[in-house]
Nucleic acid binder design. Structure first.
Lengths: 224, 224
DNA sequence: GGCACGAAGATTGTCAACAACATGCAGTCT
DNA sequence: AGACTGCATGTTGTTGACAATCTTCGTGCC
């Protein structure tokens, strides 16, 4: 082992507890689908698989509960959370109102640099749409919205937003993104940015909220 | 010990883990102010005080983190969350948009029984306002809003609402409720119920959101 | 007097063992 | 045959001990 990786391991060890490391790994397993919805989280099995004892695993599972990624029943253990279509639908709505709120706030304080940053992302998404590159579009879209939340200076809303995104991800047969859907979605992004540039809080809120409601509609269309 | 209390103890023991019991107790201590904001949660001290070992205490603290009542730093322990005025302000806003959303949904599905139930509560609050009984008003007000969330059939929003209420409670020098403020607040309650009775989703949402924004304004007035 | 250093105490992080509980199965009784 | 009882096994709940880390306080030096 090289000395750098030793140092890295030590510094990781200092800044992160085993609980946190286990939590991250479990989150990865769940969000990637390796652990499926409803599947039982066997403490002993996970502990030996990750090379730790059951204590950190138990605490990590409690943290996952916090994020709505797992649920546990007394004396029966923890299970990967299953998100029904009704719940996913409500999560879309909640995300819409939370993002709407944050965008309204952001319109009152956005800087020129931040505007530019968002415009660059929207342009990139246009390109991804033209190239019919849904993977790229998907990832840029996540960045765009996360960045909006971050610069909105609404820390609690940002945390909530991220939590909702993760939770919704549990349902997501990822919306298959046709070129049309991408173009439609990005046109809405442009409307959001335009409202932000005009410093029009009410319009920004409406545009953001409608965008997410439209997203929900596009998602619902892929269901039947 | 009577046989009933034995059965009770057994059923409690079965339905609740020590972790859950500790969690409830800690939540009580925090929300009642016995444990103050910023105060350190000493695992060993709490464990011996509650007659359990450190394990359940640690897990309970993780659960409190979920609800935003505690924060923990690696190798330094957990602390009772301190909510700044800025955070409390954002929590008011978030609550407003979440409740607004739920009220909009509720307008589309409320039953006559539920309408009646809400009207009874509003009448009771009028009485409390006239009697200048802020304690009664406060408690009725909590019931009113919680009931609205419950019958709105938006389970995730209801959970979120309750979490926000608890978190905001951490700040609350409880808004001193003058008779005027109570009357003003209850007039807004009547507008919410009226919109619900008309099955007017948009109006219900607006009325609920505005009510919470007004509440925030009344709260801010008591700050200076 | 103020600051760096180090040791002692206190506190958290982790672990492995034990106890309590749930599940599945075989055997028995009606 | 069906239902119930009791046991065997695996899993979760809880505990106390040990290791690692942080904090505090006293000492010595500048």
């Amino acid at each position: 082992m090289s000395s750098e990786s030793i140092l890295e391991a030590i510094s990781q060890r200092r800044s992160q507890s085993l609980t946190a490391l286990v939590r991250d790994e479990l989150e990865r397993l769940i969000l990637s689908g390796e652990l499926r919805g409803g599947e039982r989280l066997n403490e002993a099995a996970l502990a030996s698989r990750l090379g730790v004892s059951r204590g950190p695993v138990r605490e990590a599972v409690r943290l996952l509960e916090r994020d709505g990624l797992a649920t546990s029943v007394i004396n029966q253990g923890a299970f990967v959370r299953q998100v029904s279509i009704e719940e996913a639908s409500e999560l879309y709505d909640l995300r819409a109102v939370v993002v709407g709120y944050a965008c309204g706030r952001l319109a009152e304080r956005i800087t020129h640099e931040e505007e530019h940053e968002l415009e660059v992302l929207v342009d990139a998404m246009d390109e991804a749409a033209e190239n019919e590159a849904p993977e790229d579009y998907y990832s840029l879209n996540l960045t765009f919205h996360d960045r909006i939340m971050e610069v909105s200076a609404c820390p609690r809303s940002t945390l909530l937003y991220r939590s909702i995104v993760k939770e919704a991800h549990l349902f997501r047969r990822r919306a298959l993104t046709s070129a049309d859907a991408m173009r439609e979605s990005n046109a809405e992004h442009r409307r959001i940015v335009a409202s932000l540039k005009r410093r029009d809080a009410e319009a920004a809120r409406e545009a953001a909220e409608r965008h997410h409601i439209s997203g929900k509609r596009r998602w619902l269309r892929t269901m039947d």
